[in-house]
Structure formats: structure tokens, C-alpha cells
């Protein structure tokens, strides 16, 4: 579990449009890396290339390398389905499967992997829900629809669903943007706990959140509308928020633009 990600000279395209240019970075295992930057700078796009979810959009393509412990995710013989099984993802809006119960939602990934043994399933579901700090709230109603939970609970359910398959990496695309402050706090606490086991990458618009949860921060920006986004710098979160190397980072973090 928990592997290192190396991104090397990554260009990302939507059709002919180059959305992101020349990203190279290293994401350490068992740490939280936050992606920050103004809207449209490509941070979510970069995140989605890390588990090959970018290419599900028609016409989308990638040029460059993403290495997971030296294994190229974009190698010719690499199956995107296999990549997504080892790299979990949590989305901006909680998206539990509406027709499934809480139990089935968490078990969905295991079932896709062919796990049928009821005992294994229920043990993993319990462990994952505990891991997502949701067990105590839902243990008496595992057979109820997941869509009946509150937004924050739904998002933790999605995190439980993602960690149930024991991924190497967990990607989070603005996981708290649709949640109230208390639910947000619950998710942030959760991120703190699970970073012991996983490599976590989180996209956030909330600067304080990046400062609170992450060990390292990557700042993305774009030169102008219509130009590709770029990685300006990546460094320890402490350093990024106190004395960043780049002027643009300082301007953005201190609220002078964006």
C-alpha cells in the first residue's frame, strides 16, 4: 500500500486544446499533497490523469509519463481499469450509487473485484466504514439506501467505498466543496487519520484547508485565459504558505488574485 507517484513532463489535452503543460512532480507515499490554484488552471485535470479518469472524456488525451513506483500508468500494456482499481477517487459531489444500500455501496468495489464471500464482504465493509468514521452512524441501517444520508455522510460513504478496495493512492477532487463546515471538519480529520496508510492527493479551493490537511502543496496557474495551465511550484506546505519561492504563489495565497 501507499506508493510514490512521479509525474514527468505531462501535457494534457482536450481534443486539440492543450489544457495543462509540462507538469513534473513527485508525490510522496503516506503524505497528503494539496493542489491549489485559480479555477480553470488544470488542477482537477491533473488529478484525473493520475488514475486515467481524464481519458474517459471524448477526445481527451495525455502526453508524458505518470509513474507509480516506477511503473508507467500510461504504458501501452497498462489497462486503465487496473489503474483505477489501485488508485481510488473521491469526487466533488458525493456520488453514492442511488439504487444501492449503504452496505452495497461500500461493497461495490469488492464485488467488481470478484469477492463474493459474505464474511469477507461484511468484514471489509465494517472496516472501511470505521476507517471513514461513519460506522457508528450507519451500523444499524446498512440495508438502507446510501442516498438517504446527509451530504457529509454520503461523502464519507464514498471515501469508505474508495478505501474498501485497499487502493495504493487516494485522489480527492474538492471533496468538501459541497459540504457544510462541520462535515468538512469530519472529512479533514479523516484525511489526517488515513494518510498513515495511503498516498493522498487533494484538490481544494480552500486555502485554509490546504494548509490544515496537507504536507506538501502544489500551486497551479495559467498565464491567461485560453493558455494551458502550468505547475508553478510544489513544496512543503509550511514553506509554501510562509515564504514561497515564486511571486505568483505568494500573490495567490495572500489573496491578491484568484
Amino acid at each position: 500500500m501507499a506508493k510514490r507517484i512521479d509525474v514527468q513532463d505531462l501535457d494534457i489535452y482536450y481534443g486539440k486544446f492543450k489544457a495543462v503543460e509540462g507538469v513534473s512532480m513527485r508525490i510522496e507515499p503516506r503524505s497528503v499533497t494539496a493542489f491549489i490554484g485559480p479555477s480553470g488552471c488544470g488542477k482537477s485535470t491533473v488529478l484525473r490523469t493520475l488514475n486515467r479518469m481524464h481519458e474517459v472524456i471524448p477526445g481527451a488525451s495525455v502526453d508524458g509519463q505518470v509513474l507509480l513506483d516506477d511503473k508507467d500508468l500510461y504504458a501501452k500494456d497498462m489497462d486503465p481499469v487496473a489503474v483505477r482499481r489501485t488508485i481510488g477517487m473521491v469526487f466533488q459531489r458525493p456520488n453514492p450509487f442511488p439504487t444501492m444500500s449503504i452496505f452495497d455501496n461500500v461493497a461495490a468495489g469488492l464485488r467488481l473485484n470478484g469477492v463474493k464471500n459474505r464474511k469477507v464482504l461484511s468484514e471489509t465493509v465494517e472496516r472501511s466504514l470505521k476507517g471513514a468514521n461513519l460506522w457508528n452512524e450507519v451500523k444499524d441501517r446498512l440495508d438502507k439506501p446510501g442516498a438517504g444520508l446527509s451530504g457529509g455522510q454520503q461523502q464519507r460513504l464514498c471515501i469508505a467505498r474508495a478505501i474498501a478496495v485497499s487502493p495504493e493512492v487516494l485522489l480527492m477532487d474538492e471533496p468538501c466543496s459541497a459540504l457544510d463546515p462541520i462535515s468538512t471538519l469530519a472529512i479533514e480529520d479523516l484525511i489526517h487519520e488515513i494518510k498513515e496508510k495511503y498516498t493522498i492527493v487533494i484538490v481544494t479551493h480552500n486555502m485554509q484547508q490546504a494548509a490544515r490537511v496537507s504536507d506538501r502543496t502544489a500551486f497551479f496557474n495559467l498565464a491567461a485565459t485560453g493558455k494551458p495551465g502550468k505547475l508553478i511550484e510544489i513544496d512543503d506546505t509550511q514553506k509554501m504558505f510562509n515564504r514561497p519561492s515564486e511571486k505568483a504563489t505568494e500573490d495567490y495565497i495572500s489573496g491578491r488574485f484568484g
Binding site: N51, M53, V56, V81, A82, V83, R84, R85, T86, G88, M89, F91, R93, N95, P96, F97, P98, M100, A108, G109, L112, N113, C158, R161, A162, V165
Partner: peptide
């Protein structure tokens, strides 16, 4: 909803599994 389809795909569902789960 796109969110359900992507949710399934992000779990590593194949095309057919995505159709079946979402």
C-alpha cells in the same frame, strides 16, 4: 448522471460493469 458513471469507473469498473452498477 455523469457522477454515477464516473463513480463506477473510478472503482475500476469495466464498460460493462459500469453499465451494470450505474
Amino acid at each position: 448522471p455523469r457522477a454515477h458513471i464516473e463513480g463506477a469507473m473510478a472503482l475500476g469498473a469495466t464498460k460493462w460493469e459500469t453499465i451494470r452498477t450505474a
